[in-house]
């Protein structure tokens, strides 16, 4: 790349800064995406937790709020960092930023763990795919969860071996997950899948940190993900034609959006 290690670190540090900024944008009650399909859920969760209505505990709450907030920020044309994609941009920052704050991890360590996540992502991109159009949602929210699980292990002092098992465990849990966005937009079910992806990463990291291993090595899991992605029919690969997108409610929503589109068109 022709850049000094210092410049590369600074660029990643800037990515971390934008990740932090992207949370605040969506933590408001009244935000809405251009289609009107999404917005306001992160705030709803934030309020519920503030009022003591928590089921899963403070740490998980904070992760979930961030994952929803960043994904909603993306849907509402906020500024985000694709990680690895825009549709899955909430998972990695939700996990890393929460643990950094709650466990008092130095910022440099958090930024370095983003390199761990990137390295895992590069392996997945090379051996399989990080695009929903090619490999389904397993390739987007699945890859993000695998990256986040490995990065969290690394940041919390686990070994590289543990990090790779964390990635394998996270990926194994979402093999076959299809990409079926309603009306073809990065909103339903993508935003909530960011919350699920973050929780998947936490579970995988926790298991791996306890020394639990995936008997199928991570490289083979990634190869399996590639094979499963290739087997997915096109209607389940980001075309907005199958799965949830083909349900009666989704079709109705899509029709309403496109009707409004043609009404507002500046022709």
């Amino acid at each position: 790349m022709g850049k000094s290690p210092d410049d590369i670190y600074k660029q990643m540090e800037n990515n971390a800064k934008v990740m932090e900024e992207s949370i605040a944008g969506a933590l408001q009650p009244n935000i809405k995406s251009a289609s009107g399909l999404s917005g306001g859920d992160a705030y709803k969760l934030y309020k519920a937790i503030e009022q003591g209505r928590s089921l899963v505990g403070a740490l998980m709450d904070k992760v979930l709020v961030k994952a929803l907030a960043i994904a909603e920020s993306n849907a509402c044309m906020g500024r985000i960092v694709a990680a690895p994609t825009a549709g899955s941009c909430g998972i990695l920052p939700a996990v890393l930023l929460t643990f950094q704050q709650e466990k008092n991890i130095p910022r440099t360590k958090m930024v370095m763990s983003l390199f761990t996540a990137a390295a895992i992502g590069m392996v997945i991109a090379k051996r399989a795919s990080i695009s929903g159009a090619e490999g389904g949602c397993q390739a987007e929210c699945g890859s993000a969860a695998g990256m986040a699980a490995a990065a969290l292990v690394e940041m919390m002092g686990g070994s590289p071996r543990m990090a790779s098992h964390a990635c394998a465990i996270a990926l194994k849990s979402v093999l076959g997950l299809v990409c079926d966005p309603v009306a073809g937009l990065v909103e339903i079910p993508c935003i909530k899948r960011n919350a699920m992806g973050a929780s998947n990463a936490l579970v995988a990291a926790q298991l791996a940190m306890a020394g639990i291993e995936s008997l199928i090595p991570v490289d083979e899991v990634i190869d399996a993900m590639k094979e499963v992605g290739d087997l997915l029919v096109p209607s389940l690969r980001e075309t907005g034609e199958g799965g949830l997108a083909a349900t009666p409610t989704a079709r109705k929503l899509a029709q309403e959006i496109f009707r409004n589109d043609s009404k507002n068109k500046q022709l």
């Binding site: 790349m1 590369i8 660029q11 990643m12 800037n14 990515n15 934008v18 995406s33 920020s73 993306n74 849907a75 509402c76 044309m77 906020g78 500024r79 985000i80 960092v81 694709a82 990680a83 690895p84 994609t85 825009a86 549709g87 941009c89 990695l92 983003l114 390199f115 996540a117 990137a118 390295a119 992502g121 590069m122 991109a125 090379k126 990080i130 990256m147 937009l185 990065v186 909103e187």
Partner: peptide
């Protein structure tokens, strides 16, 4: 491909291909 193709780009959402591109 480098690390910033995976963690990045920084972009206005919602879609890297439909918005950033």
């Amino acid at each position: 491909m480098d690390v910033f193709d995976i963690i990045g780009p920084i972009m206005v959402g919602p879609s890297s291909s439909h918005t950033a591109g």
